[in-house]
Design a protein around this nucleic acid. Sequence first.
RNA 1: GCAGGGGUGGUCGAGUGGUUAAUGGCACCGGGCUGUAAACCCGGCGGACGACAGUCCUACGUAGGUUCAAAUCCUACCCCCUGCA
Length: 377
Amino acid sequence: HFFNVEHKDPVTQARAGRIRTAHGEIETPVFMPVGTAGTVKAVTQEMLERLDARIILGNTYHLFLRPGHETVFELGGLRKFISWNRAILTDSGGFQVFSLGELRKIREEGVEFRSHLDGSKRFLSPEVSMRVQSALGADIVMCFDECTPYPATREQARDSLELTTRWSRRSRSEFDLLKDTPQSTAVSPALFGINQGSVYEDLRSRSLEQLVEIGFEGYAIGGLSVGEEKRRMYDITEFIAPQMPADKPRYLMGVGTPEDLIECVARGVDMFDCVMPTRNARNGQVFTSRGKMNVRNAKFVRDERPLDEECECAVCRRYSRAYVRHLYNCGEMLASTLCSYHNLAFYLDTMRRVRQAIVLGEFAQFRACYLDRMRAG
RNA sequence: GCAGGGGUGGUCGAGUGGUUAAUGGCACCGGGCUGUAAACCCGGCGGACGACAGUCCUACGUAGGUUCAAAUCCUACCCCCUGCA
């Protein structure tokens, strides 16, 4: 079957499991690099393989606009198009309902977007999102949801969650209809529901109950890391994750920092994705076992050490901070590539170590040591 | 030699009597980034002292001058560019 838990941490809610897709197995907890427009920005697919990434994200909205899902379909699906033979998860466009702010109008039927590229009107709904994702051929498909903005009043959060539930029901129907049709390039895809409810515990529970009733292959926590205090993000995760079906993967969308990952694994989350390692890399910030570091800083001009002295990634084995800083200074694109590669290596390695610690029953200890060191700097 | 144009802060370049320590860009320094409208955005950027408010000093080629007040006006000198010899 699709997922099973292999180890449970005796102290925390952490678990180690395995997701099986037609395009490879994924050991959890897992961090999934974000590849919005059919590329994890600045790194090649070969690099992702070398990093042993087993699954990456793609985005419905962005690929829908460009090059268009029909085009991707004709080219044999997203995996073939981008030459990636491992697993892919596509986000539904629900986050763009949130992030594109003024460029969209939400109705019961769906969302009308003004394309950020040319201003043209585009329409996305649960059905359209499923059709697009089906054509793209993802292994894991996300329900079309409304990522509730923060802050939201109780009433706004409730209305938003109810809309997401109705859209989830429609997503489920359309997904089931499309599965194994000639319009799909997917093989045994799984559909995930997305929990909403903002920072209101009872609304989170209510959302989850409704989703479980519909039934999904996995459950995601959405609507977090959208501006709320970190404490609340942890609290909501701590509250809702353990309530999610134990035999299904639990995915915290859009999170987070290395520390967030560990803290939320401890609260029962199995899957994560975040633009942070790649975006911040392009902006000169690298993550290390001693905390984050801005390699653009003048103090690295003559620093011959690797980005992270304890990292064994291909970048850290070969290049110095001085060189990477120089590349940033010159506006050279290799800087982005090198830092993105390292940051992803750091994230992926962190998750492998987290998993190993859970398997060995040492997660609580690992968590404490790891975070202490990172904070000590 | 003659005619014309010009010399401004690290740099390029505005500014042609007073809200000017001097717009902007770049460079430089620092910060932010959480299901990617992001190789982006924000802040600082003459010096000294001060926690802050602020105070003082030094600055628009050089040296003088006019004026209550000058990067801005006048004189001389130095240098650069263009054209003609």
